[in-house]
Design a protein around this nucleic acid. Structure first.
Length: 1059
RNA sequence: GGGCCCGUAGCAUAGCCGGUGGUGCACCCGGCUGAUAACCGGGAGGUCGUGCGUUCGAAUCGCACCGGGCCCA
């Protein structure tokens, strides 16, 4: 063990430790060490390769790393690989930006092959950058061999799953309304829609009722451009509708509006008067037919038989009648299916009207709003604008539209029951993440649209024959090669688009043009990371995953996509336990975003405070499942804690080095703690106590780790470092470290300190792997493993836990605090001894603790005596306080006099008299208990402070003996200070002289007892103490200083002995 | 609009199967000076988001509302 002189420098330590891991190949060796352990299969949720990691990503990986390191230390053979999500529209859009593209046409002209190579380069480059960042966080996942969603093997895992879906009848091609980005010209998932406010028209439109002159249904919409696709109007059967004769100027017309909404609607339409002709329940409207006001502009509208249908989702807002266009809305579409309505969608992939839209053909739909409104003419009842949340493409920010298109679906609704059953079988941390949140989400889930009309993704492996309409789903590349006769070097577009398969009808099957929704990529990660279906062995051994952990946003994301794909493919969940963690927010609880400018990056924190501080902070700040409100003060606190850990660690090293201390080794030169176990009975109380504490810590941590209470783990560690080690044990053990001679006491101090640090670094290893390693490297014995991460996680040694001693020590700590408080009140420094400290208590625990640990209590209080008193301490005095509410009425105008007499009376005597006789007489006035109360009064020089279940009284009155020691201590302190100024070693001897201006003090300090004490404490070979006589010392000292000690002038000189 | 989570001193957090609200940071005051560009102690600071309810008693249970987050519509 080497002495450590440098203060805590995380960056140096972390660089050195990471180099060591790399050079010694520690990560691989730890894995090899646990090879025979029980398998623990972990699947890394793949981050998307867009670029740099943020605080949330860092937190995510840190949680994973801490948990996996823990499992490894518990002996588990952890099966893991880092993973990356590398396909998808976000990368396509980035590349489009780089190349200056604005539409799919640009891509087609540039060439799909060249385009996807750009995408591949982008993804691979950023993967490398991110891996380096994760490595810097000290994350031990396999970054050299990560699973990548763009690998051919990975793509096969997805193909295989979709083939299984087809076999189970869960793959379906259907016409559905989907979120559609008119710029990207593709369907996008619900999860790819971002909402923010847009201002849109808000219009009320009159639909003419068939066969009724001048009679209209009034509907409301914010998307005029969907009116050309209208086929029906929906009402709610639960509402009452009014048939109203409305008057405007000289015109009259008859309008249908929900009864309760008549007033506001007519006001909006500037009608001056109205009368309700009749009120009809919703059912009375169903089947009513109407014509489109746009029939003259959109030829097809003239052919549609529009009618009124019922729908539950219609609310009592606007007019209570809802315009239905099944081609442009999800709810509309469902109503359409139920009512067998036509799905009319005269809008193309680019968001422009098709020729079927008649007069509106070729217009971009959002631009067409005004034109449509104009075309409504007199059918427009009112026009306003509205600002409301509207969906946008997450990548290019274009407002989305809803569009009915042919897409491929995974029929999640058919396996919903299975999925819900599986959720219940998974162990969720916390429980509500599964039972409430995820369960409710899945319960509401819809079929999953897995097709996208894009380029950079896993091609959907469906080949279709245009001749006979047959289609076939391919499960592997080998299968495709066999059936097509082609070789497939790369299963991506456009290469795979060329491959054709002969159809049994004699025709030729071609691949459908679509690629997978990128969420389907990561959905198959649990078996793709094991190389399945190309390799079966690992899959058979390890699948499903023992554990995964991701943020709460992944409820709808990866938790769901994996569950869906796995339930389809294997009929069960792909994970056995899931820890759902929170989101990283700023200190105000807002989302970190570039536009607000509140983003804190992991690099910032690492550069200022180091990786271990960042790691410990994010695990310590709050429970994993709560959102993390990032706070620099918290980071600083953690830094301080690790700094104290560092100081506590290096504190005993110089003494150990000086004594060439070697910890007792066990079998094979390996440290095993046997010395402490063997000698625990003989060791001083504080040693037994800290050994007990560190074992209690291990016990508590084992319990908390079972539930992944990482915040409790780290908080328990911090509390141990600060409270138990730094503030208590180190203070108590100090004098034993300074002992000159070898002694059992010193040996115990060394062995105990060593034992505690070894235990502590092991417990810290999963959380702060660098500082733990750094300390371990200095502490480890020859036979010990090369890394702290090769050690086994410590079980609590029950035989070393002494609950009684821990309780006793708690009392002494409380006593220590109380004495400090009382001393402060009495303005008596801790350096100055006091006569006695008296503890008044009724508590048996307090009493026994202060008896058991009396020597310790004496030392801590720096008192000549510590006594425990039950009942009342006889030195307590009482101050009588008159009760005027009783005195006034009874003594009348004598009251003030009685008041004064009571106040000046000897309260203590008065109290005793009243307690004895029930009354007392002062100057002839009879005083009873109701006239007076008593407040505690302390004798001169006594100060009190409360502690748990007791009160401490400290008498700070000085006597010559106490004063002698006090001044002697002051002298010692100043000489020590001067030694430091001379930069002397702790074992150097000095010669010193003390000249004291005050003769009385000089003679007190000059007593032989104190002169010897001073000489011993400051390692003085020669010391003179005398009353200053104005003469300078004969020999000049290396350092001379004048001091003011509590108002007494002293001149002190010291030199190194022999110089 | 719905589901889930969160809302405790200036900031962050513990307590949350009910019984006089703990802790850290910051702040003020002090101590220590053989961990020292450290360390330690003391003090002040709280309508436990708001309101209603259950109860002898609620930060803790119930309901409603307000604010924040994630997700859904």
């Amino acid at each position: 063990m080497k002495e450590v002189t440098s203060s805590y420098n995380p960056r140096d330590i972390e660089t050195r430790v990471q180099d060591y891991w790399k050079n010694e190949n520690i990560y691989a060796r730890v894995q090899a060490l646990r090879n025979d352990g029980k398998a623990f299969f972990f699947v890394d949720g793949p981050p998307y390769t867009t670029g740099h990691i943020h605080l949330g990503t860092a937190w995510n990986k840190i949680i994973k790393d801490a948990i996996l390191r823990y499992h490894r230390m518990r002996g588990a053979n952890v099966i893991e690989r880092a993973g990356y999500d590398m396909h998808g529209l976000p990368i396509e859009v980035k590349v489009e930006h780089q190349l200056g593209f604005t539409s799919k046409k640009d891509i087609e002209e540039y060439g799909i092959a060249a385009f996807i190579e750009q995408c591949r380069t982008f993804a691979v480059t950023h993967m490398g950058i991110m891996s380096d960042q994760f490595r810097k966080l000290g994350v031990w996942l396999d970054f050299d061999n990560p699973y990548q969603t763009i690998d051919a093997g990975y793509i096969e895992s997805a193909w295989w799953a979709i083939q299984r879906a087809d076999e189970r009848g869960l793959l379906e091609r259907g016409h559905r309304v989907v979120n559609w980005c008119p710029r990207c010209e593709t369907a996008i998932a619900d999860s790819e829609v971002e909402y923010w406010d847009e201002t849109d028209p808000s219009i009320f439109v009159k639909f003419p009722v068939v066969g009724r002159e001048n009679e209209y249904l009034v509907i409301w919409t914010t998307t005029p451009w969907t009116l050309p696709a209208n086929v029906a109007v929906a009402i709610n059967l639960a509402f009452t509708y009014a048939r109203v004769r409305a008057k405007k100027d000289n015109d009259e017309e008859i309008l249908w509006i929900a009864d309760e909404l008549v007033e506001p609607v007519l006001k909006m339409g500037r009608y001056q008067d109205y009368t309700v002709i009749e009120k009809v329940p919703g059912s009375g409207l169903v089947g009513m037919e109407y014509t489109s006001p746009l029939a003259g502009h959109v030829p097809h509208q003239a052919e549609i038989r529009h009618r009124v249908v019922a729908a539950d989702y219609v609310t009592l807002e606007n007019t209570g009648l809802v315009h239905i266009a099944p081609g442009h809305g999800w709810d509309d579409y469902l109503v359409g299916i139920k009512e067998d309505l036509e799905v009319f969608c005269p809008v193309d992939a680019g968001g422009c009207f098709t020729p079927a839209a008649g007069a509106f053909a070729d217009m971009y739909v959002r631009d067409a709003n005004d034109v449509v409104v104009d075309a409504l003419g007199g059918y427009l009842l009112a026009r306003r604008t509205i600002t409301h949340r509207y969906g946008h493409c997450w990548r290019c920010k274009t407002p989305i539209i809803y569009r009915a298109t042919a897409q491929w679906f995974l029929k999640a609704t058919s396996i919903r029951g299975e999925m819900l059953d599986e959720i219940a079988k998974v162990k969720w941390y916390p429980g509500w993440a599964g039972s409430a949140r995820f369960h409710d989400f899945v319960k509401e889930s819809r079929d999953w649209c897995i097709s996208r009309q894009r380029y950079w993704g896993i091609p959907i492996p469906i080949w279709h024959c245009e001749e006979c309409g047959e289609y076939t789903v391919i499960g592997t590349i080998a299968e495709l090669e066999e059936r097509s006769g082609a070789t497939i070097p790369d299963p991506h577009r456009p290469y795979v688009d060329e491959v054709t398969i002969p159809c049994s009808c004699g025709g030729e099957m071609r691949r459908v043009a679509d690629i997978f929704d990128v969420w389907f990529d990561s959905a198959v990660a649990s078996w793709a990371t094991l190389g399945f279906p190309r390799q079966r062995e690992a899959f058979d051994r390890y699948w499903p995953a023992d554990f995964i952990t991701e943020g709460q946003d992944q409820t709808r994301g990866w938790f769901y996509s994996q569950l869906g794909a796995s339930t389809v493919a294997f009929g069960r969940a792909p994970y056995k336990s899931v820890l759902m963690h929170g989101f990283a927010l700023d200190a105000e609880g807002r989302k970190m975003s570039k536009s607000i400018g509140n983003v804190v990056t992991p690099e910032e924190v690492m550069n200022q405070f180091g990786v271990d501080v960042l790691r410990f902070y994010v695990l310590w700040a709050n429970a994993p499942w709560d959102d993390l409100k990032f706070n620099w003060d918290g980071v600083k606190t953690v830094h301080r804690t690790l700094n104290i850990l560092w100081n506590v660690y290096r504190f005993p090293l110089p003494y150990m080095a000086l004594d060439a201390f070697e910890p007792a080794a066990g079998d094979g030169g390996r440290w095993d703690g046997s010395f402490v176990r063997a000698h625990i009975g003989e060791m001083p109380e504080e040693d037994r106590w800290i050994v007990s504490r560190v074992n209690s810590l291990a016990r508590a941590m084992n319990d908390d780790m079972q539930e992944y209470h990482l915040h409790r783990e780290t908080r328990a560690l911090a509390a141990f470092i600060l409270e138990d080690l730094s503030r208590w044990y180190v203070q108590l053990v100090r004098p034993r470290m300074w002992l000159e001679e070898d002694s059992p006491g010193k040996r115990y101090a060394y062995e105990t300190s060593y034992y505690v640090m070894r235990r502590l670094t092991t417990l810290l290893a999963p959380f702060t792997p660098h500082i733990a390693e750094e300390i371990y490297q200095n502490l480890r014995l020859e036979g010990d493993p090369e890394s702290v991460h090769m050690l086994d996680w410590p079980e609590a040694e029950d035989s070393l836990i002494d609950a009684h001693l821990e309780a006793d020590m708690g009392v002494v700590q409380s006593f220590d605090d109380a004495v400090a408080t009382a001393r402060q009140a009495g303005k008596r420094k801790l350096r100055w001894p006091v006569g006695e400290a008296v503890v008044v208590t009724e508590s048996v625990e307090v009493k026994t603790a202060l008896q058991d640990l009396n020597a310790l209590a004496l030392a801590r209080a720096n008192a000549r005596a510590v006594r425990v008193v039950t009942g009342t301490w006889d030195r307590i005095l009482w101050q009588a306080e008159p009760v005027m509410r009783a005195i006034g009425p009874e003594f009348g105008k004598e009251g003030p006099k009685v008041k004064a007499l009571i106040e000046s009376a000897d309260g203590t005597a008065l109290k005793a008299a009243i307690e004895r006789d029930g009354k007392a007489t002062i100057d002839g006035y009879e005083i009873t208990a109701r006239h007076v109360t008593f407040a505690e009064a302390l004798p001169t020089g006594v100060f009190s402070a409360p502690m748990k279940d007791a009160t401490v009284y400290v008498d700070v009155t000085l006597t010559p003996a106490l004063e002698a020691e006090g001044y002697a201590r002051e002298v010692i302190r100043r000489i020590q200070d001067m030694r430091r100024q001379l930069d002397l070693n702790v074992n150097d001897f000095i010669v010193a002289a003390v000249e004291i201006a005050d003769g009385r003090v000089a003679s007190l300090v000059g007593e032989e007892e104190w002169q010897n004490e001073i000489a011993g404490e400051v390692r003085a070979a020669a010391l003179t103490v005398r009353h200053a006589d104005g003469k300078r010392p004969a020999e000049p000292f290396a350092l001379e200083k004048d001091w003011d000690v509590e108002g007494v002038q002293m001149q002190i000189g010291i030199s190194r002995a022999g110089e």
